[in-house]
Design a protein around this nucleic acid. Sequence first.
DNA 1: TTGAAAGCGCTAACAA
DNA 2: TTGTTAGCGCTTTCAA
Lengths: 356, 356
Amino acid sequence: MAKMTTLSDELAGQEPGERLRPTMRDVAALAGVSLKTVSRVINAEPAVSAELLTRVQRAIDQLDYRPNLTASSLRRNDGKTATVGLVLEDLANPYSAAVTRAVEDAARPRRVTVVAGSVDEDPDRERALVREFVARRVDGLIVAPTASDQSYMIGDRRAGTVLVFVDRPPKHLDADVIVAANRDGAMDGVRHLLAGGHRRIAFLGDLSTISTASERYGGYLEALERAGLPVDDTIVRRDLRSVGAAQAAVEELLHLTVPPTAIFAAQNVLGIGAFAALRGQRRQFDVALVGFDDFPLADLLDPGVTVVAQDPVAIGRLAAETLFRRLDGDRSPSTVQVVPTRLIVRGSGEIAPPVD
Amino acid sequence: MAKMTTLSDELAGQEPGERLRPTMRDVAALAGVSLKTVSRVINAEPAVSAELLTRVQRAIDQLDYRPNLTASSLRRNDGKTATVGLVLEDLANPYSAAVTRAVEDAARPRRVTVVAGSVDEDPDRERALVREFVARRVDGLIVAPTASDQSYMIGDRRAGTVLVFVDRPPKHLDADVIVAANRDGAMDGVRHLLAGGHRRIAFLGDLSTISTASERYGGYLEALERAGLPVDDTIVRRDLRSVGAAQAAVEELLHLTVPPTAIFAAQNVLGIGAFAALRGQRRQFDVALVGFDDFPLADLLDPGVTVVAQDPVAIGRLAAETLFRRLDGDRSPSTVQVVPTRLIVRGSGEIAPPVD
DNA sequence: TTGAAAGCGCTAACAA
DNA sequence: TTGTTAGCGCTTTCAA
């Protein structure tokens, strides 16, 4: 007990009104027990007598003691921090936000905390966030990969950090991944338009280097092929990166000599841009539109926008569950989980082609 | 050097293929220098000779060493973890998501990481999240308060945790807060309708116990009063908690003997519900609507929805800046920062009352 | 049931 | 410029 300083000793030199946080030692001193007894109380270990327990409890309340989880996890044998890191596209977009929330909900019962960051399609930022989260010793990472190579994480995985990927598979790294059924979903959307009688269906796509974008394009091609239709490159617009780009592309398409009678917009933002363009030209009731990725209020637009909806909540939940299963010791081979899409019919996709 | 174990010593008993993370000691041993020299290199302290620097760098690369920030911050004098905790309503809703993103952006240049959680209007959850984040020794907390009393955080603030509140002021606790101009914004919205000639303006409001909701109601009352109009309680619907509730309320209002000619929906979700109801009754071009809180795609609806927009990005940015200023030692009295709202005219709010 | 001593990975303070 | 020693707040190990 000789080495123990009291709280009031430590107060010297503090900012006015500021008080050092009491430690377990302070609690132990006040309760007149050893450090280890306090530790036992905090961790609800059974072997503590009723009397010491109340004495310790009282000291904890009196000092307003808060356990220090970082110190605890540093010393613990398993070294786990009860933290998962989320490396997503943009925490402000509805997709990333839904994934984050789903992971949070899956993590809560395990008392695991979520740290999150936005990559904004910047590979350097992806690496920086991974580094940062690893430096904080997260138990696992859920990553929507942007960089062209994820092999830089191999060392971290070997050191015990669990890696789960969402949205796109990692490259040069074998790990669990949860993806939407991009190809099948796109096929569904295009076949829906084909079933409605359309034969001239434009395609709007995101950056071709993004795997989800190229898979959706693949689905478009396959749907046309199965219908015995040729691909007309003049109505295929890829590498579109914004609402504005999609809007401009659709305006162009509408002015072609033989314009498309339907549009398949293979991404969230592009669907919105396409709708805006159609509405701007007052053609929203003439030209059919199916989007990939649902968006808020798609049902309140006029016409409601028919979409192939992803399920980001399911993706986030599965990612978290997979991560926790690995943390619990599952060493089976890595898996690819494909979350099905769902066609939501709202009007825009059911517009018939003009009879000529 | 005698006490040093090597990495291979530690490998015994590891999972197959799993390897313990190398520590500074391992790096020091491999580079043939002292622990402190490695620490100097990691922290980019200047006093290291070029030769040792390269030797250490090489060892770091060879071992794929990753610094442990939790250990570092435990030992550091300031005890700072370079982490801020966000306790928000629901990370999946656009408002919380925008705040989160803005905080992330403000935190990035300081290499501060964001941990976040959703409260879902549950006071117990608010307390649990605060406890959890404090246990992780976040440097500061940004909280959108839900509980009826925030005095439980006083001890944490005294212990040095910086507290900043957003959206609503804390109760029984004096701290910095960033809020939207709820009262003035609501007044603006209602006055816009009054200026358009409306004399019978319905009010839709969230739970009256929420301070933002009651302030917006106050703005509505004041606007009417200044215009010399009485308040008609039959067209005031408060305590609405969902899209559906707002929708039902509007449907009722439309069936009154003397229905309102305009609706002021004092919250995001309620504005959406009101629009859905008007559209469902095909009255969206007859009855004027102004909402509080912008929402995605409000401009693409028909008519576009006129709103009093909050600025969650500014709120998040100001909250983070205020938090960091406090961390940097600012001890001035706590402040209330009011972020102005902005009326965005899109059509629904400019519908004229019927001439009778 | 309780406690003393050691040490998790790192930085502070000081010495060489 | 480099290294040694102590110790951040906690858990582990082992002894009483």
